[in-house]
Design a protein around this nucleic acid. Structure first.
Lengths: 276, 276
DNA sequence: CAGTGGTCTAGACCACATC
DNA sequence: ATGTGGTCTAGACCACTGG
């Protein structure tokens, strides 16, 4: 995978080339093109982007590593640096790559800075201070996917899943009770010992131990009353209002790989969101 | 404001120019540059962006209108089209401008499509269907800013404010009770009659009637128990868990111009959020 | 058809990091 | 000094919109 890849019939140095769309057949010798010559138009930089994602997905470049330089990729794909740049720009704005001037472009990782963990953790202190919670794993068990879980994870009802229960504590105060459901097929060998041995965030754990990278997530937030069990763990009264945060997290190809329900007291914390 | 504006000492057609940083004095004849020649570096396209924002702020181009073409702006600012393009790209990703191929670049507006209203309305039906609620204004009154409101709106405690109370109904079911606080100085003449006469979203109303454009907002979500008053309006039991959504919305220059607290039942709806 | 934004190229130089 | 990403230019052609 290090020689030049031809995306279009253009030979380097040729005086004139047709930038895009002029000749669809020549445009996409590598990428699937519909049977018809119809109105399917994919810019070159999106094809490059797709190729980069594919290589990221196969683990060609590991999280935290640098990918080849823009010039190198441009030569490899036989396109201009600007085209590679636009592809990388989009991947960077998707938080899949991270650009660092003077150093290179790196595969994003959940294991680096503490601050990057706040990307998927929206719970903040009411006074605005940053505080990272401590996580305690209460339980881990195998189970079968309920209809609800199966729908969220796009698997079959009854498929084998792994369930985790954990508490997040802020300054010692139990604040969030999470129940996390994972498809067993992707997390073989997950055990409490292995989890406890890992230092860092849960998504860092998934990434380094199982090669599963969480790229984005959808959340649904509701207000619910505390059930007796939850009330005890979070030390609130039964029936107290709690935030219910349901999350489906996705990896490459929009594949769902985690379903999570968090119950959260909002005594001294809140769920923070920015609208743009 | 239609002649050429010089951003740097470079005359069009000059054989060589120093793109950026080479000569800070020549680089920023228009934009404020610190007293020292120090490490303050602003790319040209960001200067262009700032100029565009300034003109948007002064109302030179109204919401919904087209701004001049890229070529025109490039000529006006004496930079290349690519530089203008990059400035516009960022404004478009900030939802301040909207690009439409073949037509032009337009000032974003809250008054256009119904779908654009969901940008600031995160309440969704549990079944995923899109449904736009009906709004009923219950009350409007003048008041003085409490300490909390003053802090949020960055005004002085006791300053004059306008408070609105309204209900959002989905399929007739009262679901959200909003209390909205506005600085009176920016919304002179706001009355129930004027509000009720307006067709469209509240932010559309603010935009067209008062020239106040909401650009972004921060929200804090909590779970609270319904007080008797709210319970009656939303037709839930006293003490029922409700979502409390506090919002501070900002206009140009990160100026806060709205403080809002919404209380929301999550019987058949939820607060939706995407993490990227 | 002309005008707009969208894509692509080639080349130059700057800012930053590292050796 | 070298290599990386970041900025800027100039010019070409494509895709889309509307007269």
């Amino acid at each position: 995978m290090s020689e030049v890849v031809t995306l279009n019939g253009f030979a380097p140095g040729a005086p004139v080339r047709t930038p895009h769309g002029a000749d669809v057949a020549a445009q996409t010798p590598l990428l699937a093109t519909p049977t018809s010559v119809g109105p399917t138009f994919h810019p070159l930089y999106q094809q490059i982007k797709a190729l980069l994602v594919k290589q990221l997905e196969t683990g060609e470049w590991q999280p935290g590593e640098a990918i080849p330089s823009e010039m190198e990729l441009a030569a490899r794909f036989a396109v201009s640096q600007g085209t590679v740049r636009k592809a990388i720009d989009e991947l960077a704005s998707d938080n899949i790559l991270i650009r660092r001037q003077g150093k290179g472009t790196f595969v994003a990782t959940h294991t680096e800075t503490k601050s990057s963990m706040f990307r998927f953790l929206r719970i903040r202190r009411n006074d605005g201070q940053d505080e990272y919670p401590e996580s305690e794993l209460l339980e881990i068990k195998r189970a079968r996917a309920s209809a609800e879980v199966a729908r969220a994870l796009e698997i079959a009802t009854g498929d084998s899943v792994i369930q985790l229960r954990r508490v997040l504590r802020y300054s010692g105060m139990p604040t969030v009770l999470d129940e996390i459901t994972l498809p067993a097929s992707l997390f073989k060998g997950l055990s409490k010992e292995r989890f406890d041995a890992y230092e860092g965030s849960m998504y860092g754990f998934f990434e380094t131990e199982f090669g599963v990278r969480m790229l984005r997530a959808n959340e649904q937030v509701r207000a619910v009353a505390a059930d007796p069990n939850t009330a005890e763990v979070l030390r609130v009264g039964i029936g107290s209002p709690l935030l219910s945060v349901e999350r489906v997290a996705y990896t490459y190809g929009d594949k769902p790989v985690e379903f999570r329900r968090g119950l959260c007291t909002t005594r001294s914390h809140h769920y923070a969101n920015e609208l743009n």
